[in-house]
Design a protein around this nucleic acid. Sequence first.
DNA 1: GATTGCGCCGATCTCTGT
DNA 2: ACAGAGATCGGCGCAATC
Length: 683
Amino acid sequence: MNYNIHPISYLNADSYNSTAQSGSEPHVDSVAASVSEDSKSGSPKGNNNNNNANNAHITSISTSSTTSSSYEFEDTHSPTNSLSNLNTNSPQSSFTSQSSGNSPLLMDKDYENGQANLHNNGDHHHHHHHHHLQTQLGVSPILNPITASQGFQRQQQEHQQGVQNVQYSFPHGNNKSSNSAAANPFSVPLFNPIAASQSHNLFSGNHFDELLYNNYNKPAPQGQVNLHNHVSKQVDLSSEIPIPTSNNNNNINNIPESAGENLGTSPPKKKKIYRKVKDEDMKGPFNCRWKSCTAIFDVPEDLYDHLCNDHVGRKSSNNLQLTCYWDNCLTSTVKRDHITSHLRVHIPLKPFHCELCPKLFKRPQDLKKHMKIHNEDHLRNLKKNQKKLAKLEQQKMSRHQQTPLYTQPIIGNSMAAPGKRKLDGNMSMISSILTDFNFGEMHQDTNKRARFDGGSYNIDMFNKLNSTYDQTCHQQQPPQQQQQQAALHNMFNNVPQINETERYFYNLSNSIDNQYQQLLDGSGQSAQLYPTTSQTYGSHPLNGFAAPVAGLSSGSSGIYYPPQINRANNYAQSFNRVSNYQKSADKRDEEYEEEDEGEESYSEASTEDFSSEDDEEVDDDQLAGLLGGLSLEQSYDVNDVLKHKQMVDAVLQYLSNIKQKMLAEEEETTLSSSKLYPEIAAF
DNA sequence: GATTGCGCCGATCTCTGT
DNA sequence: ACAGAGATCGGCGCAATC
């Protein structure tokens, strides 16, 4: 088992600090890169592998800075350029069989030395795109490194002080019999000032310390260069392997492998180093750091394709390379998919996106394992919600059997004993709801209700109800009950008016029920709570990298984000405050735990939740935390939904009562009339 | 039918963050 | 200490080839 993870190999090359001095870097010689599983195992099929090394050569690497180089691409969009085309069911294959992507920023400095054969004539998998690269030199060396370098092996042949030239040979791809320079005698001189400079820096200073740190305990691959071997049957062992200096052997991790052996002691177990991919790591360009490869890509997907196709290769192409040469990682595996999986260590590529939270993952297994977290959370929340639902049902039963619902407290002092709450809280709430929803003047201006038409429980309704609730709770001087009663009675003049209002709130009540049930089901359908309006969808918290979602196709932008809303933004913008349902999921879980432990009734818990919020503004960190912790199932408080259900039901109950009262009055009038009439008739 | 290459996937180990 | 994430490795199935 090899856990040699280069700590900085996660980073893009831009993160390196150049500590190299032009005259101090160790000599870089050649490496025969062709070591395959076959050659190691002695398989007959491995015989051809030596050709790779012999065919390729790198004359030199230029360390001169050509920072003025400018790159201009012709459009080379390929299927994999669009993340939407990633086969997320088979990410590996998607990366390895659909490659070509954007043109890497390869610059041909010495293009007259050889013209790249830009057409892949052997690889049926991919690379049929022409990548045109224009440099300021006025010549457009056309090079698709993925195509041209298919199966390429490189060997540095000479080292010149100051300026080095890079030259690649590109044997053809999959054709086993043509895997030779003689059969494919083209070579492409390349120059990438950035990559060259970085490669230059790889072997100096602190970076070298880290290289040793991560590799001292790594067994050298067979036929490959051991850090401290200087003889190989294939390789000039000084090649690309940094020569340790006396200055960088201080760290125990720099102890060479041979040191422990010589002492007869087992070397200390090397420690894995993990580094999370940060936002800055997602910024291109992305340099290939495989040996002295100079390819640069603007998206990590293409870099991964490049690594899998050009450097790892395939056995069927006689160019399989199971040792990782990314920054001399030298991690060796026994299977191709293992090395390709390992390569993700070096690339800030997380194409697997959780649909329930903003998290991204490198491997499908990682996502799958992560999903268990949501399932467990769901089960835990389901259990809690079921308890709440049972309480709610119990309350509903008691309401229907005992007292009119509108007398049940919706708001009030949660510390007050049940049954002792003031009714003016409910009446005030009912009045506020009907007023805020403009039902009092619905016959005058129905346009004001347009936004909430149909009684659908959507994000607008969600916010509206919260707003109404808050306004009612924060009324400095709640109107007297008699005044509210009078206002309410004046709101409706006839039964049809009440019926229309009833229909509206009846639909709303059912809509809330449906949404709530979906919440309990945990089927992810809770997204329906927030319809797909332009207002309700905020920017993705991980802006800057388009992550496809497994199993979902992308839109025209090639970017799919799960139906999440930026609740913090929306609500803060709408109501200029932050409510507690914007808290992170973790905090919310804690609150649930506390609620479960306590003996509070549902209504008490829910009302207190909303009564105790403050008006402080959310800062950036808080907002970032909120965004990072939001998920469909956890981002909003189910208590809000239940509270809204209570509010609406209270309105319905009130409407039912006043309608019955109104009907009773009419009936009384009718009866009295009918009574009067027969009496008259009796005359 | 046997072999081989390849990729998917689960198990497991290791490390990080709280 | 624990949960979650990152990384590695072996088993298995499928397709192509012999």
